[in-house]
Amino acid sequence: MQGIECPFQFLTASYLVRTQDLKATTLAEFATGLEKCSDASIFFHTFQSLSRHHFLTEGFSNDFAQWVLAASNRPELAEQLASFDIREYTSLAELRADLRRVVNDFCEFHPQIATQQTFEAFAFCEAVEVAIPLAIAAGSLREFNEGLQKLSHASLYFHFIASRLRLHLSTNDFSHWFENSLGLTSLARRADHIDIYTNTLEGVRTILTQLIEKELCA
């Protein structure tokens, strides 16, 4: 394969969890928290929650849904919060609006439940990202595959999940590069269809490797 103009530079990211001065001990307070918390907090409890719990492949979607289930014992609301697929969002404002709508609707229909104390408080947090370039770059699909095998989970998360917001596109760094630098539209699409809710990050790596190897053999 000829050298390409734009090689893929692998990065990784490490995160610090920073607390916000915002807690909820009732669903009504939770609704207010969703309105007031930072965008970084919405990101932390949804996109990053998926990364922190990537090894849970059944029934875990985000921190909000888990808290509503475990601390408030409201499976009907938890289900709705869990049903949001972050892949469909390219802005946190849209995601926040949908989360708020669901919780506000619930509180409106169940005003007594909304003010009941939960078992535990929900503490709104956010993450601080420190991105680091790795000494791995790829100028071809084969080199990309070699690099892929050397990535930590944090790096896989950074490129495959968090990138959706960075790119403001319904895609990920890998697919973006496959399509725009290698012209591999089909591979880009198939990679983007890997289900991040039912696969661990290790599972994502395995499937992606299989897709690439198939492409290399074609």
Binding site: T12, L134, A135, S152, H153, S155
Partner: peptide, 12 residues
């Protein structure tokens, strides 16, 4: 923890 995680510590 896996070699990639150890490498990442070194990169950090």
């Amino acid at each position: 923890i896996g070699k990639p995680e150890v490498d990442e510590l070194r990169a950090l």
